[in-house]
Write a protein that binds this DNA or RNA. Structure first.
Lengths: 126, 126
DNA sequence: CCAGATATGATATTGTATTATCATTATCAA
DNA sequence: TTGATAATGATAATACAATATCATATCTGG
């Protein structure tokens, strides 16, 4: 049976509270205060378990390792800051006529949008 | 000085003629008829040289190694077939109001869209 | 509280894409 | 044609994220 450990709680909580997708190392950092001594292997193990349990979902990004966010959100897109490399969640505004742009015979089942630029925090700095 | 070899010609030509972004192994395959015995190291070397020379550009994809396409095209998006895993180029149709969806203080410098589904060739098969 | 099972942390290992090495081959200016 | 040297192919080495291993620590049902 699945046990209730402080590490598991800390990791789940970090992902729920982040409000944005976190990578494995970000999860490690965010969980350390609640679970001192936490190791990266445990982070990976629990990310996998949370994925399997449907608690979080994977956010695949071009050219870098995946991030993870709380599951069950409405369809949305992401923003990646090119300075701090954090990924943020964008509000739902979506593109309705993507299908019209498809070549004949192609069938779309989904899409991903990644906007990049500078986030508010970094824009403030310089 | 840069020399003109059959391998280099074959690789450049494969990327120009493909009409869609190719990964390193796809480049190898597509170039073999024009350059028998071609090795993967040479493919990587020439991809890098073509990138530096501005002849091709990199197409980064979520969760997989990059593809490369002829440079200088108008802004466009990509389609990835989930059966054959080929990536196709989509016509220009773009999303004008992405900026409106940005949180206060965020500044966008660009975006990428990846549509996924089944390409015409695979849809025909089954 | 205890015993057995699960989880953890440290680290070794794997898997995969890319780059470096090096002996050999091919290009090209003179 | 030829000599200097850039390019090639085979493969070893690297980089990196993710997983496996294993001794130890921690849960939890009884």
């Amino acid at each position: 049976m699945q046990r209730d450990t402080s590490q598991r709680r800390a990791i789940r909580r970090a992902l729920e509270d982040a409000g944005r997708p976190l990578g494995a190392l970000e999860v490690l950092e965010a969980s350390k205060s609640a679970a001192p001594g936490l190791g990266i292997a445990t982070v990976y193990r629990n990310i996998k378990a949370l994925l399997k349990g449907g608690d979080i979902s994977e956010v695949a990004l071009p050219g870098e390792p995946p991030r993870y966010e709380a599951a069950g959100k409405d369809h949305h897109h992401h923003f990646r800051c090119e300075r701090c490399e954090k990924v943020y969640e964008l509000g739902g505004a979506c593109l309705p006529d993507l299908k019209n742009a498809l070549p004949r015979g192609f069938r779309a089942t989904g899409h991903e949008v990644l906007v990049h630029g500078v986030c508010a925090a970094c824009a403030r700095k310089r």
